[in-house]
Design a protein around this nucleic acid. Structure first.
Lengths: 340, 340
DNA sequence: GAGCTTCATGTCAACGCTTTCATCGTTCAG
DNA sequence: CTGAACGATGAAAGCGTTGACATGAAGCTC
């Protein structure tokens, strides 16, 4: 049986309360006593029960993270940021994979709240109105990352300016002499992100006086195969609707697109340029290295944690709740050719 | 404030114990009462506190997972298997990233045990003798995945037959007409896996009567850049020590190697063939698609969970403890050329 | 109809902590 | 020298469950 706080107390000749204080508020205990207690803990290799502590203190020092799918490539990077920051605050992270299902996401909120998490980070799917009842009675701070809220409950979100980012992509492509720019956009259930990126693309075109054509846009669900197939469809009509560059809503789709291009004898970037989006670790590992826009995953994760920790100690004022846009960055590599 | 079991009890006009039974042993409660309790829970959107339950029942329905680094590419796949299986058993997973540090790994065991996890899955680093004291007093079942134990405490492990797998790689290469086969092996602190794969390589060569040469072997720490640099070193002496194929200890290193080859004007597989190891999702996304050996990550994760769950209900007999080898599979794609 | 089971439920003591409140010296201002 | 203030500690009451045990009402058997 593991040693309890009482065992330690007995060994150190003090009360359990003192041991507890030695752990949590060492400033309140006499240095000499502290020393004795510490030694006792050491000897018995005492490890406080996080469970008991959680029950008693009504906080668990645990954060909940709900992701749509752990196999999504961006997950690792986001998690890294979250994990690092959590550690700084002495927090653990409980992971919940909603498997892209709304029901499972709802369930995630319940389950995590059963674990008394002090906050929940919700990722990448837009929060629609049907989350409201759940959010309402949750009574736990929630923050969004890589997405935003469409629900009535005001929610803070950390993300990039998707529209602006895609605008920048177009601007970059134009600066490299491209005018016929296709797009492989993202489309998913509850996915505002995809719409925003498409919007950025359209704004970019408009800004540079290029006509928007639906025939130059295809959609995919962000995975490799989606990118491949979308490219396929674009290629099917390249005679009628030619393009020299294609921007995508995700690195993984860009990879699929490139593969498709290769399979049809096109070289990237010599014949056609391709842009990614996300700057996942793989982006620099493939040939050609992917020119893409980097999302600050680590910072986003860290900021989310920071916000949650703050919110747990004092309820955030309405002015602190909102969309926080973090800076993105265009990373130039090898998949775009300059036509100039 | 969230509703507690007592609130529900009051609303349903029963005692807390009955509500608890309604939750855990519905067969013990009168159908009519059950219905009343269920309705009350529903109305108050009652969510039992996993914390309190854990404290009282001395089990937390939680598994701990210690990984050396979440950014390791194989992590997602392993996790997927673990997560799915855990769900089946109604378990949650607590993740701990040891960041490749032995001290942090030790700490992981403590922390997780503080959360009363019913079992711990330890990944990918070999468990050396200095883990013994910790393991000893841990009193929680531990299972290894993708690695094995070198400690005194007998530990069960789920992994593939690394030696055999690498042997198969060599056999495959030989069957494609390659005789001059280089290797980019893995080397890390506490990394038995790397040694085993190297051993498989040597066994393979021996079996086919090919002389082993140290000059054809380079080491790396499994990441892209390591692969790149190792390849670089191999290339530096390709005149003196020629090779037509190189096998690697990891897909990520294979990617680095390929990039390096490309940068030096070699085409893969036309000039030089490259083999990966792991069969990560990216393996099929790159050009050329990577020929590699697939580790059954999902199964390994699932088996580990299954074992742990069983071990939690009844202490495993010594005969159940040991190395379980799961079948690997060679996946033929495009990065190896046939010389025949 | 006495004595047994059986079933459904209630009572109450944990589980291992934290946290208020009380207690007991000490110190210090006036 | 008195009383207030302070610092270090202990006692005890929870926190929200579960689980062993007790209770009481039926339903049996003979």
């Amino acid at each position: 049986m593991r040693a309890t706080i009482r065992d330690v107390a007995k060994a150190a000749g003090v009360s359990a309360a003192t041991v507890s204080r030695a752990l949590n508020r060492p400033d309140l205990v006499d240095p000499e006593t502290l020393e004795r207690v510490r030694k006792a803990m050491e000897e018995m290799s005492y490890q406080p029960s996080a469970i008991a502590r959680g029950l008693s203190a009504r906080r668990s020092d645990t954060l909940g993270l709900i992701v749509p799918g752990i196999t999504d490539f961006f997950f690792n990077e986001l998690y890294k940021g979250i994990d690092r920051a959590s550690q700084q605050y002495g927090m653990k992270v409980l992971l919940y994979d909603s498997e892209h299902s709304r029901e499972r996401a709802f369930e995630g909120f319940s389950i995590l709240s059963g674990y008394q998490v002090s906050g929940i980070i919700f990722t990448s799917k837009v929060v629609t109105e049907d989350y409201d009842p759940i959010l309402q009675r949750l009574n736990i701070p929630v923050v969004l990352t890589l997405t935003q809220s469409a629900a009535k409950t005001p929610l803070t979100a950390f993300r990039i300016d998707e529209v602006r980012a895609m605008f920048d992509v177009v601007a970059y492509l134009v600066s490299r002499g491209h005018r016929q720019i296709a797009m492989i956009a993202g489309k998913l259930r509850d996915d505002r992100t995809g719409e925003l990126r498409l919007e950025g693309y359209r704004e970019g075109l408009r800004h540079f006086g290029i006509e928007y054509s639906e025939a130059r846009v295809e959609f995919g669900q962000y995975r490799f195969d989606d990118g491949y197939q979308a490219m396929q469809r674009l290629l099917d009509r390249i005679r009628e609707v030619p393009f020299t560059a294609v921007c995508t809503a995700a690195d993984e789709m860009a990879l699929g697109a490139i593969r498709c291009l290769n399979d049809h004898g096109y070289r990237v970037p010599d014949d056609i340029s391709v842009m990614g989006f996300d700057d996942l670790p793989i982006a620099r590992m493939v040939t050609p290295r992917l020119t893409t826009v980097a999302q600050p995953f680590h910072e986003i994760g860290a900021e989310a944690v920071k916000w949650l920790v703050r919110a747990a100690s004092q309820p955030p004022s309405p002015s602190e709740i909102g969309d926080y846009l973090l800076p993105h960055r265009l990373v130039e590599r090898e998949s775009v050719r300059s036509m100039n």
